[in-house]
Design a protein around this nucleic acid. Sequence first.
DNA 1: GGCGGTGCCGGGAAAATTTCACGACCGCAC
DNA 2: GTGCGGTCGTGAAATTTTCCCGGCACCGCC
Lengths: 220, 220
Amino acid sequence: MSDTARTILLVDDHAVVREGYRSMLQKQPGLSVIAEASDGVEAYRLYKETGPDLVIMDLSMPGIGGIEAIRRLRQWDKRAKILVFTMHQNAAFAVQAIRAGASGYVTKTSPPETLLHAVIDALAGKIAISPDIDHELALSHLAGERAAADLLTAREFEVLRMLLAERTTDEIAGTLHLSPKTVANLHSMIKDKLGVSSDIELVRLALRQGILTQIDLGEG
Amino acid sequence: MSDTARTILLVDDHAVVREGYRSMLQKQPGLSVIAEASDGVEAYRLYKETGPDLVIMDLSMPGIGGIEAIRRLRQWDKRAKILVFTMHQNAAFAVQAIRAGASGYVTKTSPPETLLHAVIDALAGKIAISPDIDHELALSHLAGERAAADLLTAREFEVLRMLLAERTTDEIAGTLHLSPKTVANLHSMIKDKLGVSSDIELVRLALRQGILTQIDLGEG
DNA sequence: GGCGGTGCCGGGAAAATTTCACGACCGCAC
DNA sequence: GTGCGGTCGTGAAATTTTCCCGGCACCGCC
């Protein structure tokens, strides 16, 4: 194992960030970056092509997001090791990523040592969570803010996503073949269950929990 | 000018990104990174200390944001050259940055050549805008989506910010010493002027325009 | 000074929405 | 079968939102 370097696939839509990884990783002996992808689809293709020992992946990317990309990679190779390295200092994202099959979750604000440590841990089969996210996780538990997805029924969650993404109550009713009245009732029930009183709080909660990402906002 | 390298100050809260800049810039002869800062305050201190020829600055940072940091730097040194390099592919941010005194605006998704080109342009005193933002600017004009700040009166804008940040109509009325009725009327007028019909759309618009940043969302 | 335009503040009533209580259906577990 | 939870819809009350109004102050202009 000392003669053959461990191979790494970088996935990030920002060229400068990939350059940063590369620069940091090549200082470490025994690691070799063999490929780079800038979105989920390319990552999937290059993974199949190169079969790296580890994938370092960002979450926010155009097209299919990082979470979905993790899911697909793990579906194709059950033993794929994927380390999430992202700017989102958000426990909800970390939980989603780990559930999808990530081997670790490190924020970009972390010092280089933390990343290198996480890379080594991940390669050794361990789960690596950066300290700030550990802290976040503890906090969100203490605050009693349960994940919306756990609290709501499937139907309610679907309506919630549509409320956030789509437009009026009537349009949602049409799409879901429901009475506008029922959609309004669901809307009310959702706010009740999530403990918010206004739509503005609802959107903020959704953003915190990663149900709505700021990337979705562009096309209104 | 060929014997003395042009000096650069890097400002970004992500260590890996600074590493990426450094790696990319050192390939270019005649450029020298002399300092790095991870937030606005540190950037200000280091600028005064080192007096670089150019600052490369991210926008989203803890503490004082990038826009405010630009403003302060320019206040201290009217001729400071500041190149914004950010993930936000958002025309509104670009406009704010340029107004604050930035010499250019490049997105992190841009290829390395674009960054280098922008650096050279900025050092030469030119304004550099990356093509995707140019496109965004054109689009937002075509779509007729005017900046909220221009459309609203001072009072309306204040209420808008409070609606986004604060809580109920009554609380805002208390803080501003207004009748709840007036706040409700303002709220209605704001939505009318901005051309949205629901609070959810309002929040989305605010996020697009950078009135509310996702960083503000943490503490609810 | 007189006169329009605009922003600011709030009232009142109509209109729309939200909330609440209720009933019914369905699938599922016990 | 019975109970339970999720789903869907209705209607009526309560609240909020919207619309229209008048009053006030300020400003530029003739």
